[in-house]
Amino acid sequence: MNNYLIVAGIIFCIGALGVLMRKNLIIVFMSLELMFNAANLGFVAVSNRLNLISGDVFVIFVMVVAAAEAAVALGIIVAFYREKGTVDMDKANELKN
């Protein structure tokens, strides 16, 4: 189980790195999906180790939330692009001044 958790940790950290490092909104969104999936892998691994099913059921709910999040986030990205003509996150600075 430890191997699975460490792989999940590596993927989660890569996702976090993508969120912090990239400025392209679409790649930030895909990094978020990576983090979701790393968490899912952790749930399934622990649930398998402890002979439980709750973790596997929870993964289904995570998938539901990820699907809802994908629809809304992509809607936001399209609206942002229509407003600014770019997907650069740094252009979202109306609250700065």
Binding site: I6, G9, C13, I14, A16, M21, V87, M89
Partner: peptide, 27 residues
């Protein structure tokens, strides 16, 4: 879209610290 250099450094530091915490708690 270009990435800033200091943003890259901060991101790598935070990700490495996060990974170290995960490994410590897992192992």
């Amino acid at each position: 879209v270009k990435t800033d250099f200091h943003q890259k450094i901060i991101g790598i530091v935070i990700a490495v610290v996060l990974f170290a915490e995960i490994v410590i708690y897992t192992v």
